[in-house]
Simulated assay, not measured.
Amino acid sequence: MFARLTGLALAALLATPGFAEGDKTGVGVSDMIRPDANFGRGVSMTIWYPAQTGGGASELVGRNAVFEGTPAQREASPMPGKLPLVLLSHGGRRSSEDSGAWLAARLAEGGYIVAEVSGQRPRDPATALGEIWRRPAELGQALDLLLSDPDWQMRIDESRVAVAGVALGGTAAMMLAGGMIDEAAYVRNCFTAHPSTDCDWFASGGIDPASVDPQALTLPRRDPRVRAVMAVAPEYLAEFRTDSLAPQAASVRIFGLDQPLPGEARVAAQTGIEVVPLEGADPYDFFARCTPNGAKLLEEEGGDPELCASSADERRAVHDQLADGALDFLGRALALPN
């Protein structure tokens, strides 16, 4: 799990809006909020898309005292025609909204509509336990909403839909490709050599992972509308049933870290899924680049300064690897038929 910044003072810092200056970016951004979706906890989406230049209000999305923002044009006019869609779920149980703004913008520049999906994130370990199965359900409901929305349904090519996820979002993405978690392996995870980073959080609240809803955990989440899935450093990779991933109903690619993920070799060998390591990457490198004072602010407010341990150049290099790899994969997996 990627650590969330805590404390009211820090939350106020992170809520600071930012505005871009200079030329138009050609990347538009809009929001969709449905408070009654996803089992009543709501679904919100930040939607990125190729935009016509010269319109919209310049903005730095996700900008705050810790992270640099991503430039976009708020409510700019979309480019004409139907485009492929990527649903994006970034980070673990407590990641903030727009954590994946930088990746969404890069994909939008490449010709994709990207909906970064953010449900109401759990604030305590008791409500977090079900996030492993709520996240894929949330993605499916987000797709329903987009394809039934009068403004977006005419812009989305329903035959070219992909899901991209980071950390627990990557787990959810693999579930939409047909992947299923082994219940017994999930329950044992906190007692293995590769425990989830949430295990300490669960233990602090007296939460036993064995109390997860077994039916919801093991319910097949395969969505036949999804043609391609890319999972970035997915959590619980070692707990997936490899028989559920081979053969794949959708094209799947896993992007790993500089060091191999637990279960990575087994999944690759038994399913044929390609695993692409990202040189120099650690889990925090999938966040935006940090401001010069980001690490200091995190330490002062009780956050994890490791979130900003990478230099701007190091993080940029990881971002470039992932964005280039994602565009290559999606371009092949969602190619129009000849």
Rank of each mutant, 00 (worst) to 15 (best):
E264D: 09
Q153T: 14
T171D: 04
F191L: 10
D243H: 09
D182Q: 01
R241E: 15
D243I: 08
P209C: 12
D151R: 09
L257V: 13
A164H: 00
G178E: 03
V212I: 15
R241F: 07
P260Y: 10
A137L: 02
E235C: 02
E264W: 08
G169E: 03
A167N: 01
I156Y: 00
V166G: 08
E239Y: 10
P234N: 08
P220R: 05
A281I: 07
Y186H: 11
R227W: 09
D144Y: 05
V226E: 06
A233V: 09
S244R: 09
L145A: 07
R188Y: 03
D243K: 06
E138Y: 02
V187H: 04
D198N: 00
L147H: 01
G280P: 05
A216I: 12
P224A: 12
T197H: 02
D282C: 10
D157H: 01
C199L: 14
R188H: 11
D157T: 08
E279K: 07
Y186A: 14
T171L: 07
Q153D: 12
A265S: 13
D208R: 09
D223M: 14
V187G: 00
R225E: 10
L261C: 00
D151N: 07
L176I: 03
I254A: 06
D151Q: 04
L237G: 06
A268M: 12
S196N: 11
A210R: 03
G256F: 15
W201E: 09
R160T: 12
R134T: 08
D200F: 13
V212N: 08
G165T: 02
D198R: 01
Q270H: 13
G140T: 03
A281T: 13
D200S: 13
L219W: 07
G280C: 09
V166Q: 10
Q248R: 15
F255R: 08
I156V: 15
V226F: 09
G206F: 05
H194T: 14
M175S: 14
G179W: 01
P224Y: 06
L145I: 04
R253L: 11
D223K: 00
A164T: 01
R221W: 08
A228C: 12
E274A: 13
V267C: 03
G205Q: 05
R225M: 15
D282Y: 09
S251E: 14
R188W: 02
V275C: 02
L237E: 05
P234E: 14
E183C: 01
S244K: 02
A185Q: 04
R253A: 11
W152A: 00
P209E: 13
A142R: 04
G179Q: 07
Q270L: 15
D213Q: 14
P136S: 05
S196W: 00
A137S: 13
R241A: 14
A184C: 12
S148Y: 03
Q141W: 06
V275G: 02
V252A: 11
